[in-house]
Amino acid sequence: SEGCDDGEIVIKFSHVVAATGHPKGDAATMLADRVNKEMDGKACMQVFPNSQLFDDDKVMEALLLGDVQLAAPSLSKFEAYTLKYRVFDLPFLFANLSAVDRFNSSEAGKGLLDSMQDVGYQGLGYWLSGLKQFSANKPLLEPSDANGLKFRIQTSDVAEAMIEAIGGNAQKLAFKEVYGALQTGVVDGQENTWSNIYTQKFFEVQDGITETNHQVLAYLLVTSTEWLNSLDDETRTQFLKITEEVTKAGNDAVADAEAKNRQRILEAGATIRELTPEQRAKWVEVMKPVWGKFQEDIGEDLINAAVASND
């Protein structure tokens, strides 16, 4: 399946997670399977997992140079190109994963896919990974519990402001270093999805995980406009249709996978703390001012559209 025949359009998909067992890796594999079966003779897709080819920073440049055709970096990686994707980072914006889905398929969400056309990128769909939870080396029930703690975050101004709002200290660390850093106390806590907390075993080296669902973690399936425009109409239509279907199927599986991994963490003997409505209200109250800081970058109408998707 991996060797491409002569005359086939080669589609290289480079990403940074394992080929299986991670929602992004699974979706990429699914996409490659379908393209290679249904577009046989016309196109052929090769997936390079685990940063084998490029990391998330350089893959964007490789897209422009035409050496890679597909990538799916985390949304927070697009800050250098557009600030609009910061909407996904806003804390306590989406009530649950279906709200995110509704926003993504709304006019506003779809329009957002085109927001980097001027730099030469075309978004093809949002690949959800889950909602993020906080964990630390001490119980976190109220925002004040996080005061003075060092949290590992992904590169994102919003996340940094969010950690500042709860009186914590935001630290950037490579993903693979997080376990060791939590264990030895280089950082006190982290925020991530159930699946990442489970597969990286963060729960082993934390006091417990607080079910905050405070932020969505999602990736953007992205290609270069130049490449997409170079396809003939029929091929492009077929390719985009497959992409759309795989995006939907992948996202539908995410909620399930998240619930399963949450359960596995419990079974491993870790503590999961649920917030009472009052406690949750306190977190929201402390973090909501963060929205205001980024309203100008994102656009008020976009935020309103996102809020509307909660109903």
Partner: peptide, 10 residues
């Protein structure tokens, strides 16, 4: 001291 190496890559 540090727990087993977690292989998520490759």
């Amino acid at each position: 001291l540090m727990g087993p190496e977690i292989i998520t890559n490759r």
